[in-house]
Design a protein around this nucleic acid. Structure first.
Lengths: 243, 243
DNA sequence: TGCGGTATGATTGTATACGAATAATGCTAA
DNA sequence: TTAGCATTATTCGTATACAATCATACCGCA
């Protein structure tokens, strides 16, 4: 849901551009803007009650992040990722996350551990309310917090971006997500968390790998092995974001 | 060197925004725009002979990539990375590149191998001409090509962006770079390449790790262990790109 | 001579205006 | 009735205009 940008919003984000960036991103990730849906600049500007200029700049960044994709002279659309693209994202995270979990077990500060705990609690609460978007958001926060605890902001941000794109895809299947899936995921998060708290790097890495495999399996159960690509998505794949 | 965007430029990149993005990025990476230097939108627009609008959008993306950093209401500056930030980038690549080298040895297609070969040759040629910027560019191309050969565009792009930031830092030390350093790096690239060609994943991963360690050592020799942070750079560190 | 305040200039952040290109619509004619 | 063409409407891509803010320099005054 896109609400107007008011004075209170600007206290957090001094520019309209940033405010628009966060607002649109959130709308995409909470399912208000569905994959495949066109994003008309003027409509967004009207909803946010600002002009097109900052909206365009926000959209340029979201495009670069791979959440939205342009079709030249036709407009921008919320990305419809393919199954294969999501698998590529899984692979990317598999290369990075065990590494981060291991280091987090070494280096996590008390504050960072508290942040992990908080993210897990948040995810558990959302699971019980069947709040899919909130559950996914908490999951992203947990994974990127592991990265921060590992002392590497670059990797933490990378993981977070990847999770965002995965979650964007998953939101398309949110009707098929059930509480049990979310509970399982949360349990795995908590296991990683415990290993980090206990300063057990090997366990943290191992549990991270297990979690990623488990996520893949849930993904396969959800999506199936059939290619669910429709024509619309093909347009968007042809163009890689801004390069 | 920023040259005007003409009709020929537009055949490659249909929008001014993209053309400006590439032009400014290249200017930063080839040393025309030095770290710490302010980027005045109107000056850039004049040089490229376009208006401020597409320039601003290009700058927003470069900011998001971490090549330039804003100081609110003061303007944008080419990033002056700190030694620690560069080390973080090294760490990130160490988490990813051996993984990619291993997979590249499995999956690289003949065309992808040709691309690797081409990047290496390019780097070798630049080294002999003492063309630092060209050498670094070829290195980026090699590393991201390994990522592509590994069949993971997400990771390939991640590595490439990290290398860009590292190279931006290194350009500040380009007077201290000598031919021998470049030759050593090129030899290591070629060793990885051979392992990929010979379909030897273990060797590829091992040589990748060795290369990264070697890069770190050359980095330490170049930069020293002293903190070379000056005051100006502190401004830019405070703000993470658009988050 | 040193200091503070004001004015001026520069530069950003935002809004609006305009041209070009594409899609949609309707009209005409066979 | 339908095919084809022209016309309109929509929307992007770019340029320009305006306002807010920050830095700097200058000037008056102690």
């Amino acid at each position: 849901m896109l609400t107007p940008i008011d004075q209170r919003t600007l206290e957090k984000t001094p520019t309209f551009r940033e405010a628009a960036y966060h607002a649109i991103k959130q709308a995409i990730l909470d399912g208000s803007l569905e994959p495949g849906q066109p994003l008309v600049e003027e409509r967004l500007a009207d909803m946010l009650q600002i002009s097109r200029t900052p909206v365009r700049e926000a959209l340029a960044i979201l495009e670069h992040e791979g959440l939205i994709a342009p079709v030249y002279r036709r407009g921008l659309f919320v990305c419809k990722l393919t199954r294969d693209q999501v698998i590529e994202l899984f692979t990317a995270n598999e290369a990075v996350e065990p590494f981060l979990a291991r280091r987090a077990a070494h280096y996590a500060s008390p504050e960072q551990i508290a942040a992990l705990e908080s993210a897990i609690r948040d995810g558990e609460a959302c699971a019980e309310c069947n709040n899919i978007a909130g559950f996914l958001r908490a999951g992203r926060l947990f994974h990127s917090s592991v990265g921060r605890a590992a002392g590497n902001l670059v990797l933490a941000r990378f993981v977070e971006r990847n999770e965002e794109r995965v979650d964007l895809f998953l939101m398309g299947y949110r009707k098929a997500v059930n509480v049990e899936m979310m509970r399982t995921s949360n349990r795995e998060h908590r296991a990683i968390y415990r290993a980090i708290v206990q300063r057990d790097p090997d366990a943290a890495a191992r549990l991270s790998i297990y979690h990623l495999q488990s996520v893949r399996e849930r993904f396969a159960a959800l999506v199936g092995d059939d290619d669910r690509d429709d024509v619309l998505s093909l347009d968007e794949q042809t163009k890689e974001p801004d390069e």
